[in-house]
Simulated scan of single mutants.
Amino acid sequence: MFSITVRDHIMIAHSFRGEVFGPAQALHGATFLVDATFRRERLDEDNIVVDIGLATRELGAIVAELNYRNLDDEPDFEGVNTSTEFLCQVIADRLAERVHRGGLGEGAQGLAGITVTLHESHVAWASYERAL
């Protein structure tokens, strides 16, 4: 399996419901490094996994939709604990939509999957992997 990864970052605010979250139940900020990894079994006719420029552009557009937002105020996330794991899935699903719509070029139709990893710090991160 071949893969490439592109990176961006995001700064959000949010709060959580549930005792398991302790002090994070209060409104707080988070800054994440966002890695999007694209996978395929065989390279395309240009010997690449996906156009890295298009992958970077599309990840940046998705991150821009969330950046500097209080996720508690976003209608899409009403009543949802926007955990790191959950946000990984949101970003991966939005990338998959863009792949299917052609936003990453025709060659991206041969992708097998996407993994999105959000790094909360140098010692903690979460990922979500999905097939295409």
Rank of each mutant, 00 (worst) to 15 (best):
S127Y: 06
F16W: 04
F38I: 03
V123W: 06
V49W: 09
E65A: 15
D51R: 05
E58M: 13
Q25G: 06
Q109Y: 08
H122I: 13
D73K: 11
R39S: 13
L132V: 05
L33H: 12
D44L: 03
I12D: 07
Y128R: 10
D46K: 14
I52M: 14
E74H: 13
A92W: 00
H28N: 07
T115H: 01
I91M: 00
I52F: 13
G105C: 00
S83W: 03
F32T: 06
G60I: 02
F38S: 01
Q109L: 13
E41P: 11
V123F: 10
S127R: 11
I10Q: 11
G18C: 09
V49C: 09
F16A: 01
H122D: 15
I10A: 03
E58P: 08
T31H: 12
R69Q: 14
G110W: 00
Q89A: 13
Y68H: 15
E129S: 15
G18P: 01
F2T: 02
F86P: 03
F21P: 05
A126Q: 11
A55D: 05
Y128L: 00
E129T: 15
V50N: 08
S121M: 05
Q89V: 03
G60K: 07
G102D: 02
H100W: 11
T5K: 08
T117L: 02
M11E: 15
I12N: 04
F2M: 04
F16I: 02
E120P: 01
N67V: 05
D93C: 09
H9M: 10
T84V: 06
A36P: 03
S121C: 04
F21R: 02
E19F: 09
H28D: 08
V90I: 08
R94E: 11
N70M: 02
V50R: 10
A61W: 06
T56W: 05
L66G: 04
D35E: 15
R98M: 03
G18F: 06
E106C: 02
I91D: 01
H14Y: 05
R130H: 09
G29P: 10
L132M: 12
M11L: 12
H14K: 12
E85Y: 00
I48W: 13
E78V: 13
D93L: 14
F77A: 07
C88D: 02
G60Y: 01
I48V: 13
V123M: 09
V63I: 11
G79W: 04
I12E: 09
Y68E: 14
W125M: 12
L87K: 01
Q25S: 07
N70C: 06
V50M: 08
V49P: 09
D51K: 05
L43H: 05
M1A: 07
R39E: 15
E65V: 06
E58G: 01
H122S: 15
R42Q: 15
A26Y: 11
E45N: 14
G113C: 01
G53F: 10
Q109K: 14
L104E: 00
G22S: 12
R40Y: 06
L111S: 02
F38R: 05
P23H: 10
S15Q: 10
D51A: 05
H119R: 10
G29D: 08
R98Y: 01
I48G: 08
G18Y: 06
R42I: 11
A36V: 04
N70S: 04
N81E: 07
E74N: 13
I10V: 15
F21D: 08
T37K: 15
D44Q: 01
P75K: 03
E106P: 06
H9P: 02
V99N: 05
